[in-house]
Nucleic acid binder design. Structure first.
Length: 259
DNA sequence: ATGGCATTTAAAAAATGA
């Protein structure tokens, strides 16, 4: 079973890219972030015609997350919105059950400029995520926490770490929070299979960053211990970042075997 | 050290991203 995550950076503005990638990659499940569209403007029809059912949580202009699954699967949403702050209106979290797996699709706040209120929001959100994750990992159900974490976990995950030291994605606090999350028992799928490789999932639009491979790794797959012997493959669809009118992120995917 | 690009909203320029 192939499961992917992709920060699309505008689900309508980049619909041709999304459809091209779905058609080529054929993931069984795809988690999308940064829809940048209200729920009523989600391109449900086009995605259905591409072979996918979907659940989504949109928001006007910003954020927005969705989970797609091939029609042969039963896709059931089992919650949206990260608990812990009733004031938080941003659409950054949705979870669904597919093929006996609990899939969590998240878009962690970026946090720039840092320090500041946006960085504080990021850290509060991260804290709430870790609280939620702690209860999820106790479940009997296998769980996948995937999406755009807006965190560069280690120096190996940036082409030039010193260039990112003043950026919220590389600040010590979110990196520490990510380490605390892993300590609960989650496995970073890319690092599990590629412990020493420089692997990026994001290249900015400036300075020809993609062609220079000046990227960072911020989109992650975290697996509950149930997947210990089931993880077969974890890769980045790097070439998608080279397409016309593409997102600044590339899709990431894993292949897992049936139990 | 700055600015480089690209989106959405809405009708020009601002906000956001990372």
């Amino acid at each position: 079973m192939k499961i992917a995550t992709y920060n699309v950076n505008g689900v309508n503005g980049r619909l041709p890219v999304l459809l091209r990638w779905l058609s080529e990659s054929q993931p069984d499940v795809a988690c999308l972030q940064e829809l940048k569209a209200p729920s009523e403007k989600f391109p449900e029809q086009a995605i259905f015609e591409a072979g996918y059912a979907a659940v989504w949580h949109g928001q006007k202009s910003w954020n927005g997350v969705a989970i797609l699954a091939k029609k042969k699967y039963a896709l059931t949403e089992v919650g949206r919105g990260l608990p812990g702050d009733p004031e938080d209106e941003q659409s950054r979290y949705i979870q669904a059950k597919v093929n006996g797996i609990l899939i969590v699709c998240l878009y962690l706040p970026n946090g720039n400029p840092a320090p500041g209120p946006k960085f504080d929001y990021k850290m509060e959100w991260f804290k709430r995520l870790n609280t939620k994750a702690k209860s999820l990992i106790k479940l009997k159900t296998p769980v996948i926490l995937t999406g755009d974490y807006n965190v560069v976990p280690t120096e190996l995950d940036a082409y030039k770490p010193e260039r990112w030291v003043n950026d919220a994605v590389f600040f010590p606090e979110p990196r520490a929070a990510y380490r605390r999350l892993l300590k609960q028992g989650w496995v970073d799928a890319i690092r599990q299979l590629h412990p020493d490789e420089k692997i990026f999932t994001y290249w900015d639009y400036f300075r020809n960053a993609f062609n220079r491979d000046a990227g960072i790794r911020m989109d992650h797959f975290l697996l509950s211990p149930h997947f210990k012997d089931r993880l077969k493959c974890a890769e980045v669809d790097r070439h998608v970042r080279g397409w016309e009118k593409t997102s600044d992120h590339a899709p990431v995917w894993i292949e897992i075997s049936e139990k």
